[in-house]
Nucleic acid binder design. Structure first.
Lengths: 192, 192
DNA sequence: GTAAAAACTTGATATAGATCAAGCCTTTTT
DNA sequence: AAAAAGGCTTGATCTATATCAAGTTTTTAC
């Protein structure tokens, strides 16, 4: 399913045919079954990964053994652990597939090469990073100022479609609340 | 105090003398008194801002009138509102000085010019952005998985020196707890 | 297609942290 | 130097959300 990524590139940037081919020459297709790991805690992450199909989660496990979901990533988004990649240090996160998924991977060395040699690609990558940062800022703000109910309403507004494909337990974890609390909130808001 | 910024540049990147001069030619020096705003909610942010001296906070005000501090920025860091800058939309944040401060500003147009014309500058800027994103990710993780006490201990560990120059009320707001709770935590941890 | 596992709901109870309130220090302003 | 404002502490009480527990529904696996 490289075409999905090709379409994404064509949509986000303008490339010559030879540039497109050059990018494609580095692509590694990876398929993941549901529950399969893309990255495990302790591993060092070495890729840039684009999702063409499916859904993954990035999460950490605390000392008490509870999971905390940091992010969900679906088709047409990127995933990975930037901290592990940048500092080449063991990851504190796990990334696994919530659904059967398919990805396009680039080793980071190849990815940097592409950034250097294709300015339009570099610009696109930079824009993605800026948007990711803005999204992270907004998430921090919501975690500081929203009640549990507001967090949930904000979530379904911001990511319509996620609620139907991701188990509630995981959404609760992502929002920083227990599944029971989320269940009760859904019951209440359904009434209105 | 442009020298502080010059030193920062020399430390983070390698520039020719003419590149350095070129950068300097676009710099705007701005001084802020304590409590003075750099940006107010509703304004559109148009700069890239480096702090050479002092300390600022970025915060939002919710419907109930409570302030939520998103970040502190001190000398040798950058500040601003990327979302407002990127989309040229009214900011949801306020940025003001906690101490008398001094900044080096670049209008974003000039800043982009510098990024385009000086690859080393562009690389530096990109690295900053990546680190900012990683920091934001870590903050999300701590907000999801830490208790109030752990958040505070993590904060003083990560930013030693901040606790002595920033009022506790503001630190409490940054950590997402009330000043009373922070006061009690400090009392408890002092015992140990 | 049935058993096992995972996910969701609901109720009862507990608790971390919020809120309200008052008093005391410390800094700023005049 | 006095007054005012801002910041910190402490106690009493409240509340949103967590925890524990049991039952039900849905999904997965053989």
């Amino acid at each position: 399913m490289y075409e999905i990524f090709q379409k994404y590139l064509d949509d986000k940037t303008t490339l010559t045919l030879s540039e497109s081919d050059y990018i494609k020459s580095f692509a590694i297709i990876k398929k993941l079954r549901k529950r399969q790991y893309l990255l495990q805690e302790g591993d060092i992450w070495k890729y840039d990964a684009f999702i063409t199909q499916g859904c993954l989660r990035t999460y950490s496990v605390d000392e008490k053994g509870s999971e905390h979901i940091n992010s969900f990533s679906v088709e047409n988004w990127w995933t990975g652990d930037r901290e592990s990649l940048m500092f080449q240090q063991p990851s504190r996160f796990n990334i696994d597939a919530i659904e059967d998924s398919e990805l396009v991977l680039f080793t980071h060395d190849n990815f940097e090469l592409l950034c250097q040699e294709i300015p339009a690609f570099n610009t696109m990558v930079n824009t993605i990073l800026q948007k990711s940062f803005i999204a992270a800022q907004n998430r921090i703000q919501s975690s500081l100022s929203f009640t549990a109910e507001e967090k949930y309403l904000n979530f379904i507004h911001k990511y319509p479609g996620f609620a139907s494909r991701i188990p509630q337990t995981m959404i609760a974890s992502y929002l920083g609340m227990t599944p029971e609390t989320l269940s009760r909130i859904r019951k209440q808001t359904a009434k209105k």
